Computed example of a mutant assay.
Amino acid sequence: MSRRLANLGGMAALALVVGLAAAPGWAADENDYPTDARVDYVFGCMAANGQTRESLEKCSCSVDQLAAILPYDKYVQASTILSMRQGIGQRANEFKSTKIFDDKVADLRRAQAEAEIRCYRG
């Protein structure tokens, strides 16, 4: 029974995040980020910034701003490159030393910086 209640609590948090992402006035119509990608971003952001209501609001804002700036396919490409760079060996080195990959990651970093300015300092 307690496992069922724990699952309901998690589902309620997920529903809240999804509801915030789809709220009127947000960037949902301006991009193609799927809901699961938004939720994953918010959960990761909250893990890094505290599990508070304030961090939920700022992280939700951040992913919406990021999505308004950077198309989803470019976000996926940059995220994949960053993931591959964490490995070791020749394959990881190729991802670390190729200019086109640097440019894709730089685009993501610029979009994240702009989102941070808009959501955390604005």
Rank of each mutant, 00 (worst) to 15 (best):
G87S: 10
A68E: 07
G25K: 12
Q51E: 08
D64Y: 01
L70N: 04
K58C: 05
Q51W: 14
L8Q: 15
Q51A: 13
A6M: 12
V39A: 01
N7T: 12
A21S: 12
T52D: 08
Y72V: 05
A68Q: 13
A23Q: 09
Q51R: 07
N49S: 05
G89K: 02
V17D: 02
R4M: 07
I100A: 13
K99H: 15
V105C: 04
W26N: 07
R91K: 14
L5D: 13
A92I: 01
P24I: 08
R91P: 07
A6W: 10
T80A: 05
R109T: 09
C45G: 03
A106K: 15
G10P: 00
D32E: 13
V39E: 00
G87T: 08
V17I: 11
C61Q: 01
S2Y: 12
D36A: 03
M1Q: 14
G10C: 11
S97Q: 13
G9S: 12
R53M: 08
E30S: 08
P24D: 14
A115R: 06
V76F: 04
L56R: 00
L5K: 11
R121V: 11
S62W: 02
V17F: 00
M11N: 15
I69F: 05
D73P: 07
K74V: 01
T52C: 12
R3I: 15
Y120Q: 08
V39D: 00
M46I: 03
A48K: 13
L16R: 06
R85I: 03
Q112Y: 04
G9L: 08
Q112P: 06
D73R: 14
N49R: 06
D29M: 13
C59M: 04
S83D: 15
I88A: 14
V18R: 11
R110I: 14
A37P: 02
T98Y: 14
S60N: 12
G25A: 07
P71W: 07
D102L: 03
A106R: 12
R118W: 01
A92T: 06
A27Q: 10
